[in-house]
Amino acid sequence: MPAKKLALINLIKMSELKKIAYNCKKATYLIEKKLIGEITIREKLELKLHLAGCSICRTFERQSLIINQMVKVLFKDGQKHNLKLDNQFKTKLQQRLENELKK
């Protein structure tokens, strides 16, 4: 009897694992959690299992990581280049602040 029960429990566990093993939607969701550093130990195991058998999601993971880094570069670029206010706007703004200061 206990052996049967155990087998049943294992079967349930297997089917749960299968769900993630073959589910790319769930796996890519977990990849995002992992990259941000907020994945649980259980989720990490599930993901590992999936990635072991899915080269498409392994590609996704590498690309996703690169996208995060590219986004950072893009934002830094924007911060550095060509982002000067025109002098006319600055003069007006200075005037406005000085008027406020006088109040």
């Binding site: 924007g78 911060q79 982002l83 000067k84 206010l85």
Partner: peptide
């Protein structure tokens, strides 16, 4: 200029 860059990105 700095704040403008911060906002526009």
């Amino acid at each position: 200029d700095y704040l403008y860059g911060y906002a526009i990105t």
